[in-house]
């Protein structure tokens, strides 16, 4: 049968459910092994952050679409967390292979990395299920609320510049993403590059300033040992 937009959407949802229905809500034994290999074990930081951001997500979701839909918000977040752990494991495996290192202490204790990775996973789930809701305010007034990107950045208080850093690695680490989802993530990238990363509170300006200062300094002699 011909692919209609509804059929495509249903297929994408079924595919995501198939992958995540059997996935863990908590770090797998492989992830735990990576955490145990770290100089500073990141487990508590990671699980506390998942809990805290979950509360923020569910509050904001219910506020946006109505308290009656809070359970749906909870289900969406749960799927996002499963995808987050799945992609994290895949990323670490490929980094281990590429760099031949087993200790990812700095990366796994970086709050901006985790916040951005989790935001990316939740964005994929939210986009899969659709992010536009019609809310009835009174019996005859309806309004549309939009939970699509960059909504998740505001909810998690993530800088677009940090979110941008994880997109490409996320796509590489999750080969089951549909073509439509990759296009969506690419559109998020473009919006960040063209607009959001240049807003007043972006860390990009400090980074550019630091880069300029480094370039302006006379060449430093090489350190004797590294």
């Amino acid at each position: 049968p011909p692919q209609t937009p509804v059929r495509t959407a249903m297929n994408t949802i079924q595919q995501l459910q198939m992958i995540l229905n059997t996935a863990d809500d908590k770090p797998s034994s492989t992830l735990e092994a990576y955490f145990n290999n770290c100089t500073v074990n990141p487990t508590n930081g990671i699980t506390n952050r998942v809990e805290y951001l979950g509360q923020k997500f569910q509050e904001n979701f219910a506020q946006a679409v109505g308290e009656g839909w809070a359970e749906i918000g909870s289900q969406r977040y749960k799927l996002g967390v499963r995808l987050y752990y799945r992609v994290m494991e895949s990323m670490l495996k490929s980094e281990e292979e590429r760099l031949s290192v087993h200790n990812f202490s700095k990366l796994l204790n970086d709050a901006t990395f985790h916040g951005s990775l989790l935001a990316c996973a939740v964005e994929v789930v939210m986009t899969t299920y659709g992010t536009t809701w019609n809310i009835t305010l009174t019996s005859d007034i309806q309004t549309e609320t939009d939970l699509s990107f960059p909504w998740i950045l505001r909810v998690f208080d993530i800088k677009a510049y940090e979110f941008y850093k994880v997109i490409e690695s996320f796509i590489k680490a999750e080969p089951t993403l549909s073509r439509e989802m990759i296009k969506h993530m690419e559109r998020c990238e473009h919006r960040i590059m063209e607009c959001i990363a240049w807003q007043m509170d972006s860390p990009l300006f400090d980074i550019l300033k630091q880069q300029k200062e480094q370039e302006d300094q006379p060449d430093q002699p090489e350190p004797t040992s590294t």
Binding site: V166, S169, E186
Partner: peptide, 21 residues
């Protein structure tokens, strides 16, 4: 991935982007 433009250099990954190399 056919239409996606990859920005990372070859041999570069998430570790470099978060200054972990």
């Amino acid at each position: 991935f056919q239409d996606y433009h990859f920005g990372l250099d070859e041999g570069e990954g998430i570790s470099e982007l978060f200054d972990c190399d």
